[in-house]
């Protein structure tokens, strides 16, 4: 069964849609993907669901020129390890940018995209990817002629 088949899609759907992870209420550690047990607190740990803010920084990245079948159309594609501001490390494609503009430490935010399609007639899997942060849009409200 492929990774995009309906059962696999359904199991991971909510965490992909909303960037849901886990937090240990005992020690405060955060996890993505979700976990049932805190590796540090073990049976003393209390795991709760958390929705991450989606903000983070590029920890490291690579540019893929020869991609697996479902991702061929995206080449050259940027795949990065993004460290979320809450701590967990997430593997994701970076979109809306040229790979030449990418830098380690760059601020990124989660956006909602198509992840893969199971051929033309199959299920479409959606979820988070990341794009560079732009926090400068506040200036438009100070300009009367927007």
């Amino acid at each position: 069964m492929s990774a995009t088949a309906p059962p696999a899609h359904w199991r991971r759907m909510r965490e992909r849609y909303r960037l849901l992870g886990s937090r240990c209420e005992t020690c405060g550690a955060t996890f993505f993907p979700t976990t049932k047990v805190c590796p540090k607190c073990r049976r003393k740990g209390k795991i709760a669901q958390v929705e991450f803010s989606g903000r983070g920084k590029v920890y490291s990245y690579t540019v893929i020129h020869s991609a697996p079948k479902m991702f061929e159309q995206f080449t050259p594609a940027v795949v990065a390890l993004v460290q979320l501001e809450e701590g967990p490390m997430v593997l994701s494609q970076i979109v809306d940018t040229d790979h030449k503009e990418l830098k380690v430490g760059m601020e990124v935010e989660a956006c909602f995209r198509k992840l893969f399609e199971q051929e033309q007639s199959g299920i479409i899997s959606y979820g988070f990817k990341f794009r560079p942060v732009n926090d400068h849009w506040g200036k438009y409200y100070d300009n009367k002629d927007i």
Partner: peptide
């Protein structure tokens, strides 16, 4: 739209 954008992704971004 980008290759990975469609009506659903645009709707989610606007709704957020």
């Amino acid at each position: 739209p980008s290759l990975d954008e469609d009506t659903a992704t645009i709707a989610v971004e606007a709704a957020r």
